[in-house]
Simulated assay, not measured.
Amino acid sequence: MSRAPITKAGSERLRAELERLKSVDRPRIIAAIAEARAHGDLKENAEYHAAREQQSFTEGRIGQLEALLSTAEVIDVTQLNPGNRIVFGAIVDLEDEDSGVAVTYQIVGDLEADIKRQLIAVSSPIARALIGKSAGDSLEFTAPNGVKHYEIIAIRYE
């Protein structure tokens, strides 16, 4: 079984979520179930069914996080010495050669990818196109909305 790469920061975020689910959400849901049970008839008790559904979701997420973290390989990107090349964990400043729009992405593991936070999966088309390149290089990749052309402005590791 291969180990999925994850940045140290991504691992810490997932561990914090796991801790919150176990120490805050789980006890709150258990209390809500107990309170709803006290109201009597469970067949038509919407509060009870909602709390049980929330409990099911929370327990599923706890199991998922525990499994992901047990198989993840944490990589401290500050300890990497890639020279001036882009590797896993790089924060890359890009400029769209067609529109001139600047964007910044960090290449992270599939487990922690979140485009809203500019965290792109190492397996994504843009990350695969970036790996091995240096500042000043241009790249082309196929995105869902067509072919994109970017110039690499800067690379850093934090």
Rank of each mutant, 00 (worst) to 15 (best):
E44S: 14
P125F: 00
I75N: 08
V147G: 06
V101M: 07
A129F: 07
Q54F: 09
A9M: 04
R61H: 07
L94C: 10
A67H: 04
P82F: 13
V103H: 12
N81E: 15
Q118W: 07
E97W: 00
Q79E: 15
V122G: 06
E112K: 03
A34S: 14
I120V: 13
V74H: 02
R128D: 08
E44Q: 08
P144C: 00
H49A: 12
L21R: 08
R26I: 07
A127W: 05
D93G: 04
I153V: 13
V147T: 14
I126G: 09
G109N: 06
D93I: 01
D137Y: 01
V122I: 14
S2D: 15
A154T: 10
F141L: 10
V24E: 14
K116S: 15
E158Q: 11
Q106G: 04
K133N: 12
G63E: 10
Y48W: 13
A121C: 05
T58C: 10
P125N: 11
A143G: 09
Y150E: 05
V77R: 09
D114V: 03
I126W: 05
D93Q: 11
R3K: 12
I91S: 12
L139N: 09
T7E: 11
N81R: 13
S124G: 09
G146E: 09
I91Q: 08
L119E: 13
D98S: 04
I107V: 14
E140L: 04
R117N: 12
G40F: 00
G10T: 00
L69E: 02
A38E: 15
E35R: 01
R26M: 13
E158H: 03
I6H: 02
K133Y: 08
I86D: 12
A121H: 04
V87R: 00
A9R: 03
